[in-house]
């Protein structure tokens, strides 16, 4: 019974939504407000080789990405705080030799590719978070195949509380630096290209490493 009721409700909701969607400006037309307003300004001002999405992410709308990095950190501390008490015994998986070998072989290349994605994020496709996802995935892969102990080995113990906050802390540093050099927080100084580049890469690195540590700790918190 509940299924049918829910289906009726969902279709009921869908009808006005579809009608509204149909009335939106034509999909893909170049003269709709999306392309003629703010976006056109970004594209015209773009330097000759840059990943505009990362530029929007870090430069124009840096605050959103700062918020996003804080959101993932909030998820981590929320998960840590609400865990049920009492430790569950760790199921020690016994990996088949083939899978074990492949994972051990692939791990360093994974890491290399992840850092490539992080570091070249501001010119080529990629970026801090994408890199974090790859690195986090790497740690999880090892954890699933060799057991949480191996995944925990990836994470430094003493510096962990600092490292997991790397994302927001990097943004705070960039914010202060930007404030000093350009007079506005989170502003990247165009007149000092070296510092501009360094800040971009620094923030990307912070997001990448911080995100990877958070993803790993989320996995460990649920696993252990």
């Amino acid at each position: 019974m509940k299924g049918r009721l829910a289906a009726a409700f969902a279709t009921g909701v869908s009808i006005p939504m579809i009608a509204a969607m149909a009335a939106l400006p034509r999909h893909g037309s170049p003269d709709q407000p999306i392309h003629t307003h703010v976006a056109r300004h970004y594209i015209e001002q773009a330097p000759e080789s840059a990943n505009l999405v990362t530029q929007v992410l870090l430069d124009y709308r840096g605050m959103d990405t700062f918020g996003e990095v804080v959101v993932i950190f909030a998820a981590l501390v929320a998960v840590l705080v609400l865990r049920a008490r009492g430790e569950r015994p760790l199921p020690a998986p016994s990996p088949s030799p083939i899978v074990g070998f492949i994972v051990r072989l692939v791990t360093p290349f994974f890491a290399l590719f992840a850092f490539h994605v992080i570091l070249t994020g501001h010119e080529a496709p990629g970026g801090g978070l994408q890199g974090a996802a790859i690195l986090g995935g790497l740690v999880l892969m090892n954890g699933i195949v060799f057991g949480p102990e191996r995944a925990r080995a990836f994470l430094p113990t003493r510096a962990l509380p600092w490292l997991q906050g790397a994302g927001p802390l990097a943004f705070l540093a960039a914010g202060i630096l930007g404030g000093i050099t350009t007079g506005f927080a989170l502003g990247y100084p165009a007149h000092l290209p070296v510092l501009h580049e360094a800040m971009l890469v620094g923030v990307e690195l912070g997001i990448g490493i911080g995100g990877a540590v958070i993803f790993s700790r989320l996995y460990l918190a649920m696993e252990a």
Binding site: V38, Y60, M63, G178, F184, A185, L186, G187
Partner: peptide
């Protein structure tokens, strides 16, 4: 009002 990153209002985030 405070434009984040120094971008004038519609182009950046404003607090």
């Amino acid at each position: 009002s405070y434009p984040m990153g120094g971008w004038p209002v519609p182009f950046g985030i404003e607090l």
